[in-house]
Amino acid sequence: MQKSLHIDANKCTGCLQCEMACSYENHGVFNIAKSRIKVFNFEHAGRKVPYTCTQCAEAWCMNACPVDAIRIDATTGAKAVHEDICVGCKVCTIACPFGTVNYVAETGKVQKCDLCGGEPACADACPTGAITYVDADWTGLDKMRAWAGKTDTQARATA
């Protein structure tokens, strides 16, 4: 079963544990500036929204890469950057419509979410279930359930 990250922004509190977990998992440091997942705070609306790569099937970044440095991980389906091949040309950062692949000046390469090899640290660290790692075919299941619960189509006995 292929899984994907599922984000429910309504549950996000803005604690940034996901960003800390991401930087620690991928860089061995506590540094949200290096996180591949970012939480955006829309103050006036009172909304916090975690955002990261959705692992497009036809990935723009992968197609745009001139040196074939972004490849599909056979186990997870993640589009992973191979740093040893990446030349830091940044074409993928232009191609990605969502901005979720970014250049890292320190290394001269790009970085993006690779699903941590199948155990995403952000989902594990999220205290509220705003970020979960679920069956890729059923990311809408919770929303379906919520709406199903609101429908009123059953016949009822009337007094």
Partner: peptide, 13 residues
């Protein structure tokens, strides 16, 4: 109330 919110690192919120 619109929502609850956490400070940095807080799992209470």
């Amino acid at each position: 109330l619109v929502t609850n919110a956490a400070c940095f690192g807080c799992t209470i919120a």
